[in-house]
Amino acid sequence: MAKALLAQHALMLETLKDDKDRMEGLITLAIPAGIGPLFVTPQLLEFLQIFPKIEFELITLTSKAEEVFYNHPEKVVHVSIGYGVPGTGDIVSRYSGKMEFIPCCSPSYIKKHGHIVDPSECAVHTGLSYTGGTRTKTQELQNGGVVKQLKWKKSLSFQSLSDLKNACLLGAGIAGDIPLIHCIDELEEGKLVNVLRGWKRPAAGCYLYSTKHFVEYRRVKTFLDWMAEKHREILEQIDNRFGQLA
């Protein structure tokens, strides 16, 4: 543990040697698994067209986005992306929109087990649950002011959202909370079906985070503001696509 902390301190000292006004150098970015193809990589390529001397290192986020600046033992993280609340203290945040969580299953599951419209029916179905560290496990759904517990006949738990979605596509059960960004394509293509209509986990705020220290660097602050705007555009487009489905 001491060696990891010393390594982190050495990296921090190297960062402090940088010219704060230069639009060049490394930005280490922590992101949840699975969001890269739509939500990160295309935007990084676009940003690099504008600022070609920037370098990026991407690491997988395994905790809440605002916590990674303190609990990652080997890397100095400049920016993180994830669900959360506005930053406080030394944490700086940029809000980029809200993420809806959609109860889904495959058409093959419905054909075999029937449609489901109310959480009380979950007691005779198989539930697919996400238990990764980026957010809490979904244990209840809301519809207006009504809250109902999710109680499954049996449950399959996944720490990887990609694995959960693949199991859902294969007809293994009902996922109560796939983030809309991860299922909008499959919903449009008919590979997944929105069940429990009206019932869902409350939407989560999406944020980009950094620290007061790192936003003093022009490259970090420029990227933080630029990426937040790009994400606002993407989330708005996804919401509009889902609205057309509904």
Rank of each mutant, 00 (worst) to 15 (best):
L44N: 04
G25M: 05
A33S: 14
V77H: 12
G36D: 02
L58C: 11
T62F: 13
Y83I: 07
P37W: 11
T15N: 04
I81S: 11
E55Y: 01
L38Y: 12
G25L: 07
E24G: 13
F39M: 01
G87D: 10
P86T: 07
A10V: 07
S93E: 13
Y70C: 07
S63I: 09
M23C: 09
P37M: 11
T28V: 15
S63L: 10
V68E: 11
E14V: 10
L11T: 05
E24A: 15
D19C: 11
P42Q: 05
S80G: 12
L61V: 00
V68Y: 10
L45M: 02
E66S: 10
E14K: 00
V79I: 15
V85A: 11
L58Y: 03
T15S: 05
Y70R: 12
A33H: 12
L45E: 11
E14D: 13
H78C: 00
E55Q: 14
D90E: 15
V76E: 01
V77T: 12
T28N: 15
L26S: 06
L16R: 00
E14H: 06
T88R: 14
K53N: 03
K75E: 02
L58M: 09
L29K: 12
N71W: 08
G87N: 07
Q49Y: 03
E57F: 06
L61C: 01
L11P: 01
M23T: 02
T41W: 08
T60V: 04
E57D: 04
L16I: 04
E57T: 02
K53V: 05
T28M: 13
I54A: 07
D18S: 07
T88F: 10
I31T: 13
I91M: 13
V85N: 13
L26A: 08
G82K: 04
D18G: 02
I81L: 14
G25K: 05
E74A: 05
V68Q: 09
I31Y: 06
I81E: 11
A10E: 12
L48W: 08
D18N: 03
K20M: 08
V77E: 10
S93F: 14
V40E: 04
A10L: 12
F56V: 01
F69A: 04
E14F: 09
T28Q: 10
T15D: 03
L26V: 09
I35M: 15
G36I: 03
F51E: 02
P37I: 10
I50M: 00
S63Q: 08
E67H: 14
G87Y: 04
Q43A: 02
P37Q: 14
L61D: 09
P32I: 06
V77K: 13
